[in-house]
Nucleic acid binder design. Sequence first.
DNA 1: GCACATCAATGCATAGTGTGCAATATTTGC
DNA 2: GCAAATATTGCACACTATGCATTGATGTGC
Lengths: 197, 197
Amino acid sequence: MALKSTLRDRRRLQTLREIQRAALSLALRHGYDAVTTEMIAAQAGISQRTFFNYYLNKDAAIVGEAPCFDEETVAWFRASSGPLLADLLQALRQLLAGSELDRGTSQLIDRLLDTAPDLLPIFYGSLRRLRDQIAALAVTRLGEDARRDAELLAEAIAHALGDTFRIWANDDTMPADRIVDVARAKLQVLHGLLAQV
Amino acid sequence: MALKSTLRDRRRLQTLREIQRAALSLALRHGYDAVTTEMIAAQAGISQRTFFNYYLNKDAAIVGEAPCFDEETVAWFRASSGPLLADLLQALRQLLAGSELDRGTSQLIDRLLDTAPDLLPIFYGSLRRLRDQIAALAVTRLGEDARRDAELLAEAIAHALGDTFRIWANDDTMPADRIVDVARAKLQVLHGLLAQV
DNA sequence: GCACATCAATGCATAGTGTGCAATATTTGC
DNA sequence: GCAAATATTGCACACTATGCATTGATGTGC
């Protein structure tokens, strides 16, 4: 039952995207605060009540659903014995390869963030799910005692990845499979900045 | 006009704290979601309307006002030419020395976070102001081109500091002036984890 | 100390968010 | 096709948050 099969599921995915596109275009046109959930629902052709069946709140509709490790990747990670960071980045590569990224939507998000920097917390907050998953993977290596360290590492990785997403959205020549590499370069810079400790 | 002097300002500070204490104790007793702004206002002896004159929203009342670099510290940082990270940590030391930390309140926050982990984003979000200030300081050294790197570094520092706050809240034997040192140790660990890049 | 400016506290009205519930429509499995 | 499962919707409601006008307390200049 892992694969989405039915018409129902395909429609659900389509509606999710339609709502997000409606939310983004309205926010770009009128500003985030001026957009109401009722406007988004109307634009997406659904009722306000149904809007809340799809997204928990207005913020979630803007950023969409975050990607998520599949069991296969988790299993690979647990089996591998390479260096922690290299394995985490490899897991992220698989994650991104699996999820079909929509550069158009990412561009809209990026433009919105440019005009409304106060939305940045919402955007980076949407990476929380991913961050928690990275942290969970890291904990399997470092042990439960090092959970806080794992979370700190995961935070840095997720942040670097978020930055890279925005670069990718605005650079049509950059292929999606280079995202993790660029993020790794950012982590290298961070490593250098921390060297003086 | 830098020093708060008048009765009015002292009362304001007192009310700010009273509201926060009310919010925290109510949240610990009934759970965050079950607490309304009206309840907090009643407990603090003010009207609901006045509550919103003090805090922008319910979240802000829980975490209280974040500390903030004073001009003196900023001036020192800009004049200094030591290693970036060392200077940032030194600035944070001055910041913490200036702000009178209330371990009791921090303990309440920590206990609340234990019972309601979904409040963690609110807590770490409250460090955003501090993170932005750290990033701004770092940008004066690294240059505007490296803003994203500065922000990534600031994020890591703020996160480590937040973790350390929780440790400090629960360890009565730990003096406040060791907070930055422990945070630095956490950053050292992060540096080690990033070494494999 | 008095008069006046300034700012704080409050009530009231209102827009918007988000949830529970029940009724209705649609999809799916058989 | 039929019945079970699930989705959509309307409605009512509690709560958050803001604007505005009023009243009262505080600060300042004289």
